[in-house]
């Protein structure tokens, strides 16, 4: 009873005003709106030659272009293609990286076996593999998936490995003393302990995966996708359409960042407030 009373008091004291709670959102969105408005109106203060106009697009033109993409039915197949390749490549990377990372972190033999290989491929720019991938997998979805996979694999693998290696020795001994098997140790201590590492690896991997889709579609890995629409638009100087593709990629990246944030919050409940840094 006295407890409940106390918590009521605390809420009363710490209640924030509307401005205090929404300040980041208002400022963030407000600034974007300001930039879009300026982008829209500033060009109208200048007279542009026909040649210059060719390289320029205002926000209204960009959104008209997106509207046209939707109306003509071109957007959905391209979007479905790009996001399927993204999702499949990322999912494969997660499925491969987590067990391999745990193995490398827990077994010195595994680490010594795989480490030089991982370091070498990770140090190589992913684009170098593209010609080979196109020869092996042809122009199409498979090649894009492979490029995404290679991009997303390494940040996940390296972070999982780091997290597993930094697992708390004391906690491992605690669960061992209660008769835990190697599998129990991984399940109860090693994996929960490396989750912060894995999630920051996931954040990097998502960036690399989006990059993988763009790179593969830009450089001939595929004949479909948002990236292909952008390349074609670029070669015919349709600046508004190029911007449309760019906006779509930005929106996708925003959504994905939101998803990672939600995952973080879900796994963060047990952490003290000041330690929530990732």
């Amino acid at each position: 009873m006295s407890n409940r009373h106390a918590s009521n008091e605390t809420t009363a004291v710490t209640r924030k005003t509307f401005w205090e709670t929404n300040e980041p959102l208002i400022l963030g969105v407000g600034f974007i709106v300001l930039v879009i408005v300026l982008w829209q109106i500033v060009p109208s203060f200048f007279t542009m030659s026909k040649g210059m106009k060719l390289f320029f697009a205002t926000p209204t033109m960009v959104f008209t272009a997106i509207g046209d993409l939707i109306a003509s039915g071109k957007l959905w197949p391209a979007l479905r293609f790009s996001s399927s390749a993204f999702a499949a490549g990322l999912a494969l990377a997660i499925v491969a990286a987590l067990p391999l990372g745990v193995l490398m972190g827990r077994s010195r033999l595994m680490n010594e076996l795989f480490d030089p290989f991982v370091t070498a491929i990770n140090a190589t720019p992913r684009l170098v593999f593209l010609p080979l991938i196109i020869i092996w997998f042809g122009i199409g979805m498979t090649s894009v998936i492979v490029v995404v996979f290679i991009g997303a694999l390494f940040p996940l693998l390296i972070n999982t490995y780091e997290g597993v290696k930094n697992a708390d020795r004391l906690l491992i001994n605690v669960v061992r003393s209660y008769g835990a098997s190697e599998w129990d140790i991984n399940r109860l201590v090693v994996i929960p302990n490396s989750l912060p590492y894995i999630i920051s690896g996931l954040r990097l991997a998502i960036g690399r995966a989006v990059l993988g889709v763009v790179v593969a579609e830009f450089f001939g890995g595929s004949a479909k996708g948002i990236g292909v629409i952008m390349v074609q638009a670029s070669s015919s100087f349709q600046v508004d359409l190029v911007f449309a593709g760019l906006i779509i990629f930005m929106a996708l990246s925003l959504v994905l960042t939101g998803i990672v944030r939600a995952i973080e919050t879900r796994f963060n409940r047990w952490r003290p407030e000041k330690a929530k840094t990732f």
Binding site: L171, V174, S177, L188, P192, W270, R271
Partner: peptide, 12 residues
Amino acid sequence: AMVFQEFGLLPW
């Protein structure tokens, strides 16, 4: 069963 100096509780 052991009681550990640094407690050894699983923080999650």
